[in-house]
Write a protein that binds this DNA or RNA. Structure first.
Lengths: 218, 218
DNA sequence: TAGATTGTTAATCGATTAACAATC
DNA sequence: TAGATTGTTAATCGATTAACAATC
């Protein structure tokens, strides 16, 4: 099993390579990919080897081959069916953000308890009441879900989803979810991210001031 | 300097502890915090020690003391001024999401090149044209920025911001940013997160099937 | 006291980094 | 060939985990 970080980077490399290809670049070296992805060349090579991609010691990597390999490694040939739970401000923004971004990751159904949303089509995605989760999830064979409900409802939603066989959750609710080991959860707690940024921004600003003071003393 | 992961977890502990306090819990043990945060008790103790929080070997940790210490460690007493760049679907959703969530992290200004947004107040935040970035950033003493512009514009925006002294960026644009070492960047690439979830969901589903097959054989 | 906890130290694990040989 | 690259191996680094003594 490839590590979590490597999978994320492979996905990034793929995107960068497809931009290269659009610019008609045929071959590339690890350090070129590394510069774009902001990682080290050695890391790129290691990641690519994990994905069974090999290069040529004179011409580096063939962009077309690499893209093919990465797609084969990362994508489900049948595509993955995604549901989104919660169609508030955040849910609607996520629908608009994800729609069309990756054809293989299709958000096919949205769910919300608000009756006024029942039956509406938002960014091309139909909205169902929570009661119909089981029926719709089975109909579409949903394997991935995005949780965009308030914190208080998130665990209940996660339990329902995993009970229906969903094995991957992208959780935007600001609570850590309790799930079985065979379910992959990615927590995207945006408040924590913003707090981290603010904290390090302050530390860096302080470090800059104190290093300037030190320089001044010398 | 405390590690990135620890800072994130401290922020999480604080939130969980404040919920405890709302339920009138006075003292707590590391394993209680650990169960809520989905980490190990040893990790909780290590994190708390990093933040110079100490406990009592019989009564564990005092919830009130802990909250006070964590706030002192994590928060800027004067509050941090945050700007958001890009007021599209995502930007507006982020404004609504962050508004009021952390009083110490106030989004005081939004910026967008779309003239129709100039002067509008969205979720209590005034919208300015990009031309006014420098003047407004200096006026409010902005130290943190959220980047919610399309990929093609992100690097330019980041350069402008860091040029104005912003030392923390929360980047939602799907490109890695090039910044100086004294700027902290948190990349929140939601497409990569969703791809990771889909990938591991598939691996886990496959693993479940093969383990069932193995059990069947025995 | 006895017992469960905290804080500290040593051991383990994994990922990253650096150094090298192989290749075209 | 010469040179820059790839792929491989060994060394380093850091974080996590486990084991222990100290505490109330």
């Amino acid at each position: 099993m490839i590590s979590e970080k490597t999978v994320g980077r492979l996905s990034l490399y793929r995107r960068l390579l497809s931009e290269m290809q659009a610019g008609e670049v045929r071959t590339t070296y690890s350090h070129e990919i590394a510069a774009l992805a902001r990682v080290t060349p050695a890391q790129v090579r290691r990641d690519l080897m994990e994905a069974h991609c090999s290069g040529n010691s004179t011409r580096g990597y063939d962009v077309g081959d690499l893209l093919g390999n990465l797609c084969e490694c990362l994508d489900n040939p049948r595509g993955d069916m995604v549901a989104i739970i919660g169609v508030g401000n955040l849910g609607r923004a996520l629908l608009s953000y994800f729609t069309g971004r990756r054809p293989n990751l299709k958000i096919v159904a949205a769910f919300d308890d608000d009756p006024s949303k029942n039956g509406r089509v938002i960014h091309g995605c139909r909205c169902y009441p929570m009661d119909e989760l089981e029926a719709v999830a089975r109909e579409y064979d949903i394997t991935v879900a995005i949780i965009a409900v308030p914190a208080a409802a998130a665990q209940l939603v996660a339990d329902k989803l995993t009970g229906l066989g969903v094995r991957g959750l992208l959780n935007f609710a600001p609570v850590p979810l309790h799930v079985h080991a065979d379910v992959f959860v990615e927590n995207l707690d945006m408040t924590i991210s913003l707090e981290k940024v603010a904290w390090f921004a302050r530390q860096n600003a302080c470090a800059a001031v104190s290093s300037m003071e030190e320089e001044g003393k010398v």
